[in-house]
Computed example of a mutant assay.
Amino acid sequence: MEALKGAVLLYLVVRSALSPVLVVANDPSPLQDICVADLSSPVKVNGYVCKDPDAVTVNDFIYHGLHNRGDTNNGNRQKTTQVFVTQLPGLNTLGAAFARLDFDVGGINVPHTHPRATEIFLVMEGALYMGFITTANKLFVTTLYKGDVFVFPRGLVHFQINVGSGPALAFAGFNSQAPGLLQIAPSLFNSTPPIDDSVLRNGFRTDQATVDQIRSNFRTA
Rank of each mutant, 00 (worst) to 15 (best):
A3N: 09
A3R: 07
V8F: 14
V8W: 11
V8S: 10
L9C: 11
Y11S: 14
L12N: 10
L12M: 14
V13Q: 13
R15V: 10
A17W: 11
S19G: 10
V21F: 10
V21P: 01
A25F: 02
D27M: 03
P28A: 08
L31S: 12
D33A: 12
A37Q: 04
L39D: 11
V43K: 13
G47P: 12
Y48D: 00
Y48V: 03
C50E: 11
A55R: 15
T57G: 15
T57Y: 07
N59D: 14
I62K: 07
I62T: 10
I62A: 04
H67N: 14
G75K: 09
G75R: 03
Q82R: 15
F84K: 05
Q87L: 07
Q87R: 04
L88G: 02
L88I: 13
G90Q: 01
N92V: 04
L94R: 08
A97W: 05
A97L: 08
F98K: 05
G106K: 07
G107H: 01
T113E: 00
T113M: 13
F121C: 05
L122Y: 15
M124E: 11
M124G: 10
G126F: 05
Y129Q: 13
Y129P: 01
Y129W: 13
G131H: 00
T134P: 00
K138L: 10
L139R: 02
F140Q: 00
V141E: 14
T142E: 10
K146L: 03
V151T: 07
V151N: 08
V151L: 03
F152M: 07
P153W: 04
R154T: 12
V157P: 00
V157F: 00
H158N: 02
N162Q: 08
G164V: 01
G166M: 02
A168L: 09
L169F: 06
F171S: 05
G173I: 06
G173N: 04
S176T: 05
P179A: 09
G180H: 01
L181H: 04
L182C: 13
Q183P: 09
S187R: 03
P194M: 14
I195M: 08
S198V: 14
V199D: 06
G203A: 04
D207P: 01
Q208K: 03
T210L: 14
V211M: 02
D212I: 02
R215A: 08
S216A: 15
R219I: 04
T220I: 09
T220F: 12
A221P: 01
A221H: 07
A221W: 12
